[in-house]
Design a protein around this nucleic acid. Structure first.
Lengths: 210, 210
DNA sequence: TACAAAAACTTACGACGTAAGCACATCAGA
DNA sequence: TCTGATGTGCTTACGTCGTAAGTTTTTGTA
């Protein structure tokens, strides 16, 4: 009986699906192969090695991010693309850590970097300023997303975990930490998931440099 | 001939040394044991498992960071502790990624978090604001440090790599990226390693909230 | 000296990434 | 139709990993 042939696309697509569902550490050549009804070594006909496979799905993720365009309203553009990146990374939780330490970026990532730098340089930032600015913004995106992923999404669960955390922290040794956990338990999702808090800090600060 | 007995401290100290020298991925129970003239399984008498070992050395790193104290000059305090954290993480390159996704923090890390939050809350930030602020600051520290670690430290090497990078980026497809690499090649270390650039953005922005 | 507890060692299992080589299918040119 | 090349998938195998289980050795105390 004929099987649909393997291909780089089929491999990457299944690998992405598995990473989204179970995290990067659950991705092994053997498991991806099994999901495709194939032996592990067959993947190597279409993919250089595991690193290449991960680079592949990482660049697919990069391709999902909405690009900024050069515009008078550069802050709006950067805010929009930051929120897009944030949403995309929330959909692909494993990707944050890979984004953050990817050596040579793939084509989609390059396009994303180029568009961001281009948007900033078009309104007067020097290339070096634009580089620093983009780094600062992306650091915020990555860090914020990572932190949000580490917390329960559902309000009820969040509250429960925050309260348990507060109880587990000795009030005498760590008073501020303790107080924070208590306070967090009583926040709304809007308050605590305030992506724009740090972003606005950064964008307004950047504007003052122009 | 008598051997100095194993202990948690001896294990963590050697593991830290190895991680500093060769990176986290080169740390295996077998290799750490070998460096201590001992078999792998012996480590398990003093350390719960590999994760516990890594948590252990991570908290040692956290302990090296200078703590902020509540002070009228909270910006100075936060800047000092940020620079300290940056320096410490540069000494222990492997630690950035662990810091960033550590689940339950160790005692030194808790102390560090508590001191930072305490410093911010003492000058009037609400607990939730302090939490967001500390996150934003730490995200900047981690991101900036990671990026700096990825680049050559020596000026000559940096220039060479930046130029090679510029040459490798197609000018037509990625004009802004290309221009940035060219510009970076002509910067001084002070310009490009401007840790305070983003930090000041954030601190000044925070001050406006008070 | 005797004995219990702690520490170190041995062996083994089931993962992992991937090198090397083999088997089979597809297709080109004769 | 036959032949050989090319590419795709499979088999086997090696060295690495974390660590469970069981055994021996060392150490501290009575």
């Amino acid at each position: 009986m004929p099987r649909t042939p393997l291909s780089r696309e089929r491999i990457l697509s299944k690998a992405m699906e598995m990473a989204d569902a179970e995290g990067l550490s659950a991705l092994s050549m053997r498991k991806v192969a099994a999901q495709l009804d194939v032996e592990a070594m067959s993947l190597y006909n279409h993919v250089k090695n595991k690193g290449d496979m991960i680079d592949g799905i990482t660049d697919l993720v990069a391709g999902e991010i909405t690009l900024p365009t050069p515009d008078f309203d550069w802050k709006g553009e950067m805010r929009a693309r930051s929120q897009s990146a944030h949403r995309v990374l929330m959909r692909h939780p494993w990707a944050v850590s890979v984004f953050v330490e990817s050596g040579l970026p793939g084509p989609n990532m390059m396009t994303y970097l180029d568009a961001s730098l281009g948007c900033l340089m078009a309104v007067g930032f020097t290339p070096v300023q634009a580089d620093l600015a983009r780094n600062t913004i992306d650091n915020h995106i990555y860090g914020f997303t990572r932190q949000q992923l580490a917390r329960p999404r559902r309000a009820r669960d969040f509250k429960r975990v925050a309260k348990a955390e507060a109880k587990a922290i000795p009030k005498d040794s760590y008073p501020a930490l303790h107080r924070r956990s208590l306070a967090l338990a009583d926040t709304t999702a809007e308050e605590r998931e305030d992506f724009d808090f740090g972003l606005t800090l950064i964008l307004d600060g950047l504007e003052a440099l122009l």
